[in-house]
């Protein structure tokens, strides 16, 4: 892993994405009996675009809301979430770096790194 400064993100009041909209949508998907996985940015290094706490939700149909990287790794997150549902696992940590081939393929072009934690809500 590259030597790169870890970012600690201080609570971000202005990030609407972090709180209400996404969580309320997760709740309404659950109420319509959909399986929902919540993805949260838990660690970032360097110039990763979305701060710690940024969220995205994915349901078993592959519908998603929110963002964890501004578009770079979302496709990969959706696949991981669908796998999690399929394999009936409850959580997983996924790390993306620029050296990581999968990250290249999904294009983490910013030079940052991030860890995303995905968990089923049930």
């Amino acid at each position: 892993m590259r030597e790169c400064k870890i970012n600690y993100f201080l609570g971000n009041n202005l990030n609407e994405c972090m709180s209400e909209t996404i969580l309320k949508s997760a709740n309404s998907w659950i109420e319509t009996k959909k399986k929902v996985v919540l993805a949260t940015v838990i660690k970032t290094w360097g110039s990763s675009p979305c701060p710690i706490g940024s969220k995205m939700i994915v349901n078993e149909k592959g519908d998603f809301l929110g963002s964890v990287s501004g578009g770079c790794v979302e496709a990969s997150i959706i696949n991981e979430c669908l796998e999690l549902i399929k394999n009936k696992n409850s959580f997983k940590k996924i790390h993306f770096t620029v050296e990581d081939e999968s990250a290249w393929s999904v294009g983490l072009a910013c030079g940052g790194e991030l860890t995303v934690y995905i968990e089923q809500i049930n």
Binding site: E20, L23, I30, I42, F91, K93, Q120, N122
Partner: peptide
Amino acid sequence: MKTKILKEIIKRNSLKEDFAVLTNLSTGN
């Protein structure tokens, strides 16, 4: 995450309170 916790976060958010959510990354709780 338990649905119960999700609902609790939404509720506390609507009350506009300060709180935090802790997650144990090795157990998922």
